[in-house]
Design a protein around this nucleic acid. Structure first.
Lengths: 251, 251
DNA sequence: CGAATAGTGTCTATAAGACATTATACT
DNA sequence: AGTATAATGTCTTATAGACACTATTCG
């Protein structure tokens, strides 16, 4: 903390940026807004915004923006601060310090563009990471750090269940890992690992969901445990996921 | 980022706080400053301060404060942003957002109190974590999060070498883990683990340092690797370090 | 019964935990 | 020689990786 009261420290503007991740068609997507106003008018950017008033709590501001810009009620949503972006030149409007939040969610409906936004849509995360879709400000970096944080947390926390609905199958949980990490995992070893980890998932009724001529999968819900030990490993011998084009979602 | 230009966002004050960790007498210490001015005059707090001018880079500000308040030239120092503390009521001077930095360093000399500081000293980290020494603002939380970050990074990065001087023995490296984690590790398994991890340490000449009637230890320096795989484990069966009172340092 | 996905079991390789022994330098 | 620390080796156990098989549902 500052020791000096006789001098006037410079003021800055405080903003929040939200990296909202979800799975759609087994691919990792991030929510983007098409900016309707300058600066970067017309460019795609993360949802977010300035602090509303001087006494607003930062996480509160993040949840407010989440509701305003993406129409998401964030009560049950995993929301976590993961970084700070405050380079002097990053925003032409002045010295803006941006707190980055990570939100993880099960599959969500198409977003609707809020005020000042020309559009809003889910974009596959790799389109952003590969620079195929350039973003406003330093938001590509923000997305990259957010995704990396999510990847890392998958290793030693039960975050993966936050991508799933309340009840889910182990195959769905497996898809979370494959989509976020971009690798193929052996389902058999995966099942063993999950069920051998105390409090990761708990069985929820015997079965349900017979969608065709297949055996229905057992259902689970998130268990009380939050830390995984030993952690899930992603650094050894998994196959990278083949870059076949998956079919676009039906409109 | 904000979408609204027609309205005036509130301004905040930006500060940096530094959690500077080092090892002294095989115990983890954190650098604290005795505040010489209000608020919290007379209380112990982390070194830190406000941004100097509107265009100062945040990490630059952290390095500047590190030099000003602790007399540390930070060129070669591991310095990492790890958190943000911005609750509305945390600073009586107004809405202050504080960026927390973690600095890791080999054993350092006694600090000298800078301007506006009544004192400066190394304090054992557990004295802070156990609330035996209350700190100003929310600095106890900041220390706790910083220490936890360091503990965590020890697991899967080669951060431990940042606590050591340029050349070090494996026994010294072991002490880093024991001090930061607060556990006892088996030296034999530790040696095996370290030497089996590619690029963690590299041998530096055969030997040296015969400090008595003992076999001198081989010397190493930090290797080029930064990530540890598999990670060092701290969650299984190590003994907690006995809470014997170690002798105070000679004055 | 065939198709398709769900779930279990087995073998092997790797790495961690526990512990005994040898090595080196000094007095 | 005695002492104190350095370093290596061995055995056991836990867990990951690879892979084959059985189970369940529905048409």
């Amino acid at each position: 903390m500052a020791d000096d009261d006789s001098w006037d420290p410079p003021a800055v503007l405080l903003a929040v940026d939200l990296v909202i991740l979800t799975l759609r068609q087994t691919r990792l997507h991030v929510l983007l807004i098409e900016r309707g106003v300058a600066p970067y008018q017309g460019a795609w950017a993360l949802p977010g915004g300035f602090l509303r008033h001087e006494n607003e709590d930062i996480e509160e501001a993040a949840r407010r923006e989440l509701a305003e810009e993406a129409g998401l009620v964030s009560s049950k949503l995993h929301l976590e601060q993961f970084g700070l972006f405050g380079e002097p030149g990053r925003d032409p409007r002045g010295r803006v310090i941006s707190v980055a939040f990570l939100a993880i969610s099960p599959e969500l409906p198409e977003p609707v563009a809020g005020t000042d936004a020309a559009g809003a849509r889910w974009v596959p995360a790799d389109e952003v990471l590969s620079s195929a879709l350039p973003l406003a400000f330093d938001h590509q970096c923000v997305v990259a750090e957010g995704v990396e944080r999510a990847r890392s947390k998958l290793e030693h926390t039960s975050l993966a269940t936050a991508f799933c609905r309340t009840v889910f199958t182990l195959a769905e949980l497996l898809q979370v890992y494959e989509a976020v990490w971009g690798v193929r995992l052996d389902p058999r070893n995966f099942y063993r690992k999950i069920q051998g980890t105390r409090d990761f998932v708990i069985a929820d009724g015997p079965s349900r969901k017979a969608t065709g001529a297949v055996r229905p999968a057992r259902l689970f819900r998130a268990g009380p445990g939050t830390m995984l030990f030993p952690p899930m490993l992603r650094s050894t011998s998994q196959q990278p996921v083949p870059q076949e084009h998956r079919e676009e979602e039906v409109p």
